[in-house]
Simulated assay, not measured.
Amino acid sequence: MTHQLVIKKAGQALPTAHKVLIMLHGRGGSADDILSLSQHLAVSDFALLAPQASNHTWYPYSFLSPVEQNEPSLSSALENITQTVQTAVDSGIRTENIYFFGFSQGACLTLEFLARNAQRYGGAAVIIGGLIGEEIDQTNYQGDFQQTPIFIGTSNPDMHVPVERVHESAKILTAMNADVTVKVYDNFGHSINNEEIEWANKLVFT
Rank of each mutant, 00 (worst) to 15 (best):
L64I: 15
E168S: 15
L131V: 14
T87R: 06
G106N: 04
A107L: 09
S155L: 05
G123P: 09
N70Q: 00
G123M: 10
G122Y: 06
Q146T: 13
Q119N: 10
P72M: 04
G130L: 14
Y141D: 01
S65K: 08
R120E: 12
P162Y: 00
Q83Y: 08
Q86F: 10
G123I: 07
I172L: 15
V166I: 14
D158W: 00
I98P: 11
P149K: 05
A88L: 01
T87Q: 14
V166S: 01
A170T: 04
S62A: 00
V126Y: 08
Y121V: 06
S155R: 01
S76T: 05
I98L: 09
T139F: 13
R165L: 15
R120N: 13
A107E: 08
Q83R: 05
A107N: 06
T87V: 05
Y99H: 12
V126A: 06
V67Q: 05
T95C: 10
I150S: 02
S155W: 02
V67P: 11
G133K: 02
V85E: 09
S75I: 07
Q138S: 13
P162D: 09
V166E: 06
I93T: 15
G133C: 09
F113N: 03
L109S: 00
F100W: 06
A88M: 04
E134T: 07
I93V: 13
E71T: 03
Q86E: 13
I150N: 03
G130T: 15
I172S: 04
N140D: 11
N70F: 01
Q119H: 11
E96H: 13
I172P: 01
G130P: 15
F63I: 10
G92C: 06
A88R: 04
N156H: 14
F103K: 03
N80K: 06
T139C: 08
C108Y: 14
I150Q: 05
F100P: 11
G130E: 15
G122A: 09
T139L: 13
E164C: 09
S65D: 12
G92P: 06
K171I: 10
F145M: 02
